[in-house]
């Protein structure tokens, strides 16, 4: 029983980790520019397909995917960063000062464009990618059997969280970013380089999308043009439940949703299990009715100039 519990807990944490990385990507952008970037999920799919060359409907021909891990990881992360930064420079920069709804719809447009680009290049059928098969081998921890991949997911996410925290607390751009996220106009007036701060935030969100992509691929074994959609939805819900603008809240809520999902999967009667997500979102609605600002809403009510 205890063993089962530990196993499920690790499942929940690794599921929550993918959500957390994506929620952080959304949260970073939202906190500096009040944009909910729905293209974040498409960044994830883009990074997965970046491993392949277009070779016709459903055919897998690895390209970057053939690189050894030490080279593959930085290349994919760099591609994710470039894609996200390009969307800022080519699209969002031109919408500064627009209504949040306008920017949000633009991000839907961007996401749709990216998805259709992948559709054009690779077709609509999922493509098998055999990335790091060794990671799916289980390891024994005592009498607990854990897929190596789940440990990697936990470790990488922890590392990303620590690195991001250090970046936000200890660096020049981190200070600028936290000041901007609270009061953008004031920060700008103090001379904080707004465009660069936003560009760095996009770079980070792209790196997080690439990381989520690389951690998802070995598990599912397929690249699918819609693979980021489900993750995005949960991550977006997590940022709302966590209190938009609170990064800590987004991460904690992402893990919470991971936990609730996995435990509903066990606890629900067999007949109700297909409707698990309905129960998860019912819980989300209940939370938002009780705490409309989110579970961990930061004190963001201060006057904006």
């Amino acid at each position: 029983m205890m063993l089962n519990l530990a196993q499920n807990l690790i499942d929940a944490l690794s599921l929550g980790s993918i959500y957390a990385l994506t929620a952080l990507g959304i949260g970073m952008i939202f906190s500096v520019m009040r944009l909910v970037n729905f293209a974040q999920g498409n960044y994830i799919a883009f990074c997965a397909f970046a491993l392949l060359v277009p070779a016709g409907e459903g055919i897998s021909r690895p390209f970057i995917g053939l690189l050894p891990g030490w080279a593959l990881v930085p290349v994919v992360i760099a591609l994710g960063m470039l894609l996200a930064m390009a969307s800022e420079i080519l699209l969002f920069r031109h919408l500064r000062g627009a209504q949040p709804a306008t920017m949000m719809i633009a991000s839907f447009g961007l996401g749709s464009a990216l998805q259709n680009l992948l559709l054009m290049l690779f077709g609509s059928r999922p493509i098998a990618i055999n990335l790091w098969p060794a990671l799916t081998q289980p390891v024994m921890i005592g009498s607990l059997m854990v897929p190596r991949l789940q440990l990697v997911i936990l470790a990488v996410t922890a590392l990303a969280l620590v690195a991001l925290t250090l970046f936000l607390r200890r660096t020049r751009f981190g200070t600028a970013m936290r000041a901007s996220s609270e009061n953008f106009l004031m920060a700008r007036m103090l001379g904080v380089p707004a465009d660069r701060v936003i560009l760095v935030a996009f770079g980070i969100s792209g790196a997080l999308a690439a990381t989520a992509s690389l951690l998802t691929l070995p598990q599912t074994g397929i690249a699918d043009i819609r693979m980021g959609d489900g993750i995005l939805l949960v991550a977006f819900v997590a940022t709302v439940v966590g209190g938009l603008g609170s990064l800590t809240g987004a991460v904690l809520s992402a893990y919470l949703i991971g936990l609730v999902s996995v435990f509903l999967q066990i606890a629900l009667p067999l007949a109700a299990r297909p409707y698990r997500d309905a129960f998860v979102y019912a819980a989300v609605i209940a939370v938002l009715m009780l705490k409309p600002d989110g579970l961990f809403s930061a004190d963001r009510r201060s006057q904006r100039i």
């Binding site: 200070t175 600028a176 936290r178 000041a179 609270e182 009061n183 920060a187 103090l190 001379g191 904080v192």
Partner: peptide, 16 residues
């Protein structure tokens, strides 16, 4: 910047 410390508030201006 209410979420930042006093020191960080002042440092943010110097960063600017």
């Amino acid at each position: 910047f209410s979420a930042l410390s006093v020191h960080e508030n002042v440092a943010a201006a110097a960063v600017g």
